[in-house]
Amino acid sequence: MKHSLSLYQDFGPDPVACRETGHYQREYIEGFVNKWDELIDWESRAQSEGNFFINMLREHGARSVLDVATGTGFHSVRLIEAGFEVVSSDGSPEMLAKAFENARARGHILRTVQVDWRWLNRDIHDHYDAIICLGNSFTHLFSEHDRRKALAEFYATLKHDGLLILDQRNYDAILDVGYSGKHTYYYCGTHVSVSPEYVDEGLTRFRYTFPDHSTYHLNMYPLRKAYTRRLLQEVGFQQVDTYGDFQETYRDSEPDFFIHVAQKGYREPIS
């Protein structure tokens, strides 16, 4: 697998002007990827989210799952251990290499494919019962054209009654109220600092500081919840249910993350 030789993240002379979808590959350099699991903390993450995704997939009868934002492999490994057939993909070769290494250490061999979501069907030829796109990954897409293209590719890769589970940070709260970052559910590492360094309607620039004082950044597009739901519906998903930090009922400003569960299956219109 090809590795990036870059030792430092490069956002150019004006980092907050860096708003390009393809830039994420240069953000996930090897040094950052090797520290990512300090941020997640696999054991604490498993306890905090419980069996939410496993139960959701089982309730919809899913067996085959395409993990399109594998990262370091946390959800792929959990789903394999729960009995699902999983293919693990990511746009970052560094992340896929780390995921493969993490899975192998736990006795599993991941089926990995490096993909760009905008051309998913170029590299992924099978159809799946479910697709998961987790870890706030969808917010790496900076243009509406790219977001619609990616969702259309997801839709086409699902079987006729397939399910897409896509999450995002609560950018509504970040934009309108301010960042809280409780780290209760998603980022469970206790010694890693995560906070927005810059925020506007078109960019949230996050800073990640680790115990050894190393610092990395990610530039993300601040998706509003209603906008994401609308895109999912306009692409063709028949029903979209949105959870806040794994809860069905919540106040919009409270969750750190929203989880959209989008069903492809055709439903007769109500007359």
Score class of each variant (00 low, 15 high):
residue 55 N to I: 09
residue 119 W to L: 05
residue 233 Q to W: 06
residue 95 M to Q: 05
residue 122 R to Q: 13
residue 250 Y to H: 05
residue 20 E to A: 11
residue 86 V to P: 01
residue 21 T to H: 09
residue 119 W to D: 15
residue 120 L to Q: 07
residue 11 F to R: 01
residue 119 W to M: 13
residue 3 H to L: 13
residue 9 Q to C: 10
residue 157 T to E: 08
residue 80 I to P: 07
residue 186 Y to D: 07
residue 268 E to N: 05
residue 79 L to K: 04
residue 226 A to S: 10
residue 48 S to I: 09
residue 38 E to T: 08
residue 220 M to N: 12
residue 160 H to I: 02
residue 177 V to I: 10
residue 13 P to Y: 03
residue 171 Y to L: 01
residue 85 E to S: 14
residue 174 I to H: 06
residue 60 H to D: 10
residue 195 S to A: 14
residue 97 A to L: 03
residue 175 L to A: 05
residue 188 C to Q: 00
residue 35 K to L: 09
residue 99 A to G: 10
residue 185 Y to D: 08
residue 160 H to G: 13
residue 103 A to W: 00
residue 184 T to V: 11
residue 167 D to E: 08
residue 221 Y to T: 03
residue 8 Y to R: 09
residue 90 D to R: 13
residue 7 L to K: 14
residue 260 H to N: 10
residue 76 S to C: 14
residue 57 L to E: 06
residue 265 G to M: 04
residue 188 C to S: 07
residue 43 E to D: 15
residue 159 K to A: 06
residue 176 D to Y: 06
residue 51 N to G: 10
residue 78 R to F: 06
residue 246 F to R: 08
residue 244 G to Q: 06
residue 180 S to F: 01
residue 93 P to S: 08
residue 225 K to Y: 11
residue 38 E to C: 08
residue 123 D to S: 13
residue 142 F to K: 05
residue 6 S to H: 11
